[in-house]
């Protein structure tokens, strides 16, 4: 038993995958015949935007930060895309990504240069973006928002009716993340800054540059996630990504990245995002009222994170 525990401690990712398998098995036992290729395909489709948000969140949490503006940025990017679709797909895409860029730069300036606590900084920019979008929407009432076909394909399309298109985007981002975190100087620096900012300074590292780029990347990933989301729903509204704020943080924590920085990685976040997606699916299958679903979801996230904290102590 203790040996098994030691094995799990050494390879926490295995424990996560095991948990995921248990969840999937649980569904299949409770409702035989649920787990089909189509179900798996849908799970991946829905997990992708969360995992992309989680990628950005992983980047900032590795440095000991957090980004609470990701939901507003994702929503904003989606809304800007839909309302500018008339001026051409390229323009609309550029505009919505530039929202991510701008918010990222502001967050980066605040956190990296002026050393504002990430929580407060991103809370502030999140409010700013959210409010600005509300005001913006009132000027856009006349126009007819619609989602470009290419984004719809990205967010909802499936190749051969089975392989979700957004899986390719996710896979590319995941590959980049894993390579960057473990094999590049930038990745090393994210861990280093998260572990001991002062030591990095003394070692001659310009910490602010690392953090600045980090927050810009996070906001850009949030904007991309917003695009995938709006492609999936095909309707831009101003609360599109609100429900993703908690899961974006939760999938990183469940995936084993320390909120204090310096420890963790993206592979855990991937499994974390899958676990949360499957959990949602289970709760939907259970056919309980929405409030109860919400309570259960929160309680399970909390117990998972607590179990993880005890396991890795």
């Amino acid at each position: 038993m203790s040996q098994a525990l030691a094995l799990v401690r050494g390879h926490t990712i295995l424990a996560l995958i095991l948990l995921l398998a248990v969840f999937v098995l649980g569904i299949e036992i409770a409702r035989p015949g649920t787990v089909t290729p189509l179900w798996i395909s849908n799970a991946l489709l829905f997990a992708a935007p969360l995992a992309i948000l989680g990628a950005g969140q992983t980047l900032v949490m590795l440095t000991g930060g957090i980004d609470l503006s990701v939901a507003s940025v994702a929503t904003g990017a989606a809304y800007i895309l839909a309302t500018n679709a008339a001026s051409g797909d390229g323009t609309a895409l550029a505009l919505s990504l530039s929202l991510g860029l701008i918010v990222g730069i502001v967050n980066g300036l605040g956190v990296a240069v002026l050393r504002v606590q990430p929580l407060v900084m991103t809370l502030g920019t999140g409010l700013m973006v959210g409010g600005a979008m509300t005001v913006y929407s009132q000027y856009m009432l006349a126009s007819q928002p619609h989602v470009p076909a290419i984004i719809q394909t990205l967010g909802a399309g499936k190749i051969l009716g089975l392989i979700p298109v957004d899986l390719f985007l996710w896979a590319a981002i995941a590959a980049l993340m894993l390579f960057a975190l473990h094999r590049t100087g930038f990745g090393r620096l994210l861990y280093a800054v998260g572990d001991n900012r002062e030591a990095c300074h003394l070692a001659g590292i310009r910490v602010w540059r690392v953090l600045f780029v980090d927050y810009v990347l996070c906001a850009l990933l949030a904007a991309i996630a917003g695009l995938v989301l709006v492609g999936g729903t095909n309707a831009a509204d101003l609360s599109l990504a609100d429900v993703y704020l908690l899961p974006s943080v939760a999938c990183v924590i469940i995936g084993g990245t320390s909120i204090f920085g310096g420890r963790g990685g993206y592979s855990g976040t991937i499994v974390g995002a899958l676990i949360l997606t499957v959990l949602t699916s289970i709760l939907t299958l259970l056919d309980v009222p929405e409030p109860v679903k919400q309570i259960l979801y929160g309680a399970i996230i909390l117990s998972l994170a607590a179990a993880y904290a005890r396991l890795t102590e």
Binding site: R188, A199, L202
Partner: peptide, 22 residues
């Protein structure tokens, strides 16, 4: 403690100084 990355490996700690430039 001002110079070390406590949660990282000896290797990453020793190699840190080479990451100072862009």
């Amino acid at each position: 403690l001002h110079a070390l990355l406590p949660q990282r490996s000896i290797r990453e700690n020793v190699a840190l100084s080479s990451l100072g430039t862009l």
